[in-house]
């Protein structure tokens, strides 16, 4: 049959077709798992010891955007509180307040995907005049 059968909903140009795709969904994707806890956390007094600060380091976590550092001042198994959030590198340096310190680290991807806390670091002590590993 000659002549236009203008049934198509929206022919986009003089000689083009418009047809449908029979579909209600168009593709499948998958998300990765939550991040693992940062590996190999370590804490060591900065040099010289008279700086009275502790540097905490850990291994990068894939896709992590920031890290949170937690500290305990009682024991390795004590209560940990957040002392630094939004850390974008794989290290963080403490303040100079005297005390005994253990640290843990957690990774964050985006704003809500949080890893478990890492294992605790070894103990370091800041005194009135220096810093030392225990």
């Amino acid at each position: 049959m000659l002549g236009s059968l203008a049934i198509a909903p929206a022919v986009d140009a003089a000689s083009n077709w418009v047809v449908h795709v029979a579909s209600t969904n168009s593709g499948e994707a998958k998300a990765t798992v939550l991040p693992a806890a940062p590996a190999s956390p370590a804490a060591a007094c900065t040099s010289p010891a008279s700086n009275k600060t502790i540097k905490v380091t850990w291994t990068a976590v894939t896709h992590a955007t920031t890290y949170t550092v937690y500290q305990s001042t009682t024991s390795a198994t004590g209560t940990y509180t957040s002392v630094a959030t939004g850390v974008t590198t794989t290290s963080w340096t403490s303040g100079t307040t005297a005390g005994n310190y253990w640290f843990k680290v957690a990774a964050l991807i985006g704003t809500t995907w949080t890893s478990p806390e890492s294992a605790a670091t070894t103990e370091n002590t800041i005194s009135a005049s220096s810093c030392a590993a225990n």
């Binding site: 059968l5 049934i7 022919v11 083009n16």
Partner: peptide
Amino acid sequence: VAGIVLAGAGAYAATNWVVGVS
């Protein structure tokens, strides 16, 4: 050239379409 549009409106529910080809 064919522009292919996804089904969405009820008017487009038919499986087959007859379209004009210039």
